[in-house]
């Protein structure tokens, strides 16, 4: 059996576990933590699947996804802190 297929299966199971935590909650922070973990596992999944299909160029997509995941995460936390994306203070 192909090693990359085995690795992808394992990463998919990990993503499933993260999804279960995202559904169980109980707080919004647990859900964000699970979503972030899901995102970083997606980066690994894209990298491994590029090797499985013999197209390692997909690593560029993995790089972009890593950055997007981080930016989205920080934006979400900033929103939850200030309830606004544009200003530093609440209700400005």
């Amino acid at each position: 059996m192909n090693v990359f297929a085995v690795a992808m299966l394992g990463i998919l199971v990990t993503m499933l576990l993260a999804l279960v935590r995202a559904f169980l909650g109980p707080t919004v922070y647990d859900r964000v933590l699970a979503a972030n973990m899901f995102g970083t596992k997606t980066v690994l999944l894209i990298a491994v699947s590029g090797f499985l299909t013999g197209r390692p160029e997909w690593l560029d997509l993995a790089l972009i996804y890593a950055l997007m995941n981080f930016t989205g995460m920080i934006a979400l936390l900033r929103f939850s802190k200030f309830e606004n994306l544009a200003h530093d203070e609440q209700g400005k």
């Binding site: 085995v6 690795a7 499933l16 576990l17 993260a18 933590l33 973990m37 596992k41 690994l44």
Partner: peptide, 28 residues
């Protein structure tokens, strides 16, 4: 690859087993 995926799986199990948010962040 197999040991790396193994650590990912352990982290995923930890996400489900740990009792509160702060301890789950260690698993992540």
């Amino acid at each position: 690859l197999v040991s790396g995926v193994g650590f990912c799986l352990i982290g995923g199990i930890g996400m489900l087993r740990m009792p509160d948010f702060y301890t789950r962040s260690h698993a992540a």
